[in-house]
Simulated assay, not measured.
Amino acid sequence: MNRIFSGIQPTNQLHLGNYLGALRNWVRLQDTAENFFCVVDLHALTVPQDPESLRRSTREVTAAFIAAGIDPERSVIFAQSTVPGHAELGWLLGTLTPMGWLNRMTQFKEKSGKHREESGLGLYSYPVLMAADILLYKGTHVPVGEDQKQHVELARDIAGAFNRRYGVEYFPLPEPVIQGQAARIMSLRDGSKKMSKSDESDYSRINLTDDADAIALKFRKAKSDSDNLPDTKDGLTGRPEAENLITIYAALSEQSVDQVVAQFAGSQFSKLKTELADLAVEKLAPIGARMRELMSDQAELDRLLKLGTERAAAVANPILRGAQDLMGLVR
């Protein structure tokens, strides 16, 4: 059976893009693979974090996993930092990762910007930790967005380098899994930018914790243009806001973009926004309500995280020990 590993950072609030691009697809994977879904709190530390906010966000992301439909009895849900093997294997793999490979990683360049010399080592080397996250469970497949595909390719390179160095086929070469038409949901305020947890405007995204009124209001205020909606998919070209709202409707209703374009052909934006708001409330409001319920019982969330940690460690620890043995470490 395939073994899936994927994770989300506990920074800011999860939003519609996280649900459609990741969580909903993870739920569907539960029937076809052995799944490890991780709150990657060590990755969050690559930028400064308020400790209390980080703890709360870790629990909130856990609540989102469960509220979206991930069953903690069927899938392993845990916080990355509670399994020390992630950091340990990250160091071991870092010893055989060439600097040139890391220099090619585009996300460091984007995130460090003009402050590259002041950026922490963790921001530069975190792709190695991401490789360790996957390989610590001998993950075979990694559901990711297009912007993370390069990191899975690096994990493959590192796994291959380890296998060649020690003359064994110890780590599998993980495959990226890009799923669904809604892998890239854009901002409600600017259709040319990806919906982001870090956007200053809360009106740019639908948070999973938003109630029905907030969801409806944000779609009503979503940016649009002055033309009626097109009658063909090609008519969306050059109209990023129209394309984004059509894409969101298609994803939530599980239809194709062509079907949704035909449904709203010639309509004004207001009709699409109204029906999209109703659909989003129907799909997302129960998730938000369940998240709030889970967040009100911290002891239960912590119990579920501890259960996940124990299950993850039971798989990870023997794999880590095997890597240590191959590398000549005395245990």
Rank of each mutant, 00 (worst) to 15 (best):
W101E: 08
P174I: 05
P318Q: 08
W91D: 10
V281R: 02
F162A: 00
A183K: 08
S192F: 04
S57W: 05
E34Q: 14
I77F: 05
Y124M: 11
V260N: 00
G308D: 03
E117A: 15
D41G: 07
Q107G: 09
D213T: 11
P51K: 03
A251V: 13
Y203Q: 14
A214V: 14
I8D: 01
G288W: 00
S224Q: 10
T237A: 15
A161T: 14
Q49A: 08
F219H: 03
R28Y: 06
A277D: 04
E300R: 15
E153L: 15
L279G: 08
R205L: 14
P240N: 13
E117Y: 15
L252P: 01
P143M: 12
N2W: 09
V61F: 05
E117N: 15
D210P: 04
T95W: 04
L284T: 05
T309A: 12
Q80F: 03
I134C: 00
E254W: 03
E73V: 05
A131E: 01
N244H: 07
A251F: 13
S253Y: 06
P127H: 03
L136I: 03
K114Y: 10
G122Q: 04
G328R: 07
D199C: 01
K149A: 10
I319T: 14
K149H: 07
K218N: 10
K273C: 06
Q181P: 12
T237Y: 12
E310A: 10
E243W: 13
L92F: 08
N207Q: 14
R116Q: 15
I66C: 02
Q268C: 02
T237C: 11
N35W: 03
V142Y: 01
R56C: 08
T82R: 14
L92V: 11
I4R: 00
P240Q: 15
I134D: 00
L307E: 08
K194D: 07
A277P: 02
Q255L: 06
I246S: 01
A155S: 08
K218R: 15
R331G: 08
Y166I: 09
Q181I: 15
A312M: 05
E117L: 15
H151F: 10
S256T: 14
D147N: 12
L173W: 01
V177E: 09
G85Y: 01
N228L: 13
E275G: 05
E146A: 15
F65E: 02
A161P: 04
E153H: 11
I134S: 00
G69H: 07
M195V: 03
G160Y: 02
Y170A: 07
A299G: 10
K283S: 07
S270A: 13
P98V: 09
Y19R: 07
L16T: 02
A159M: 06
R56L: 11
G180N: 13
Q9V: 08
S119W: 04
T46N: 10
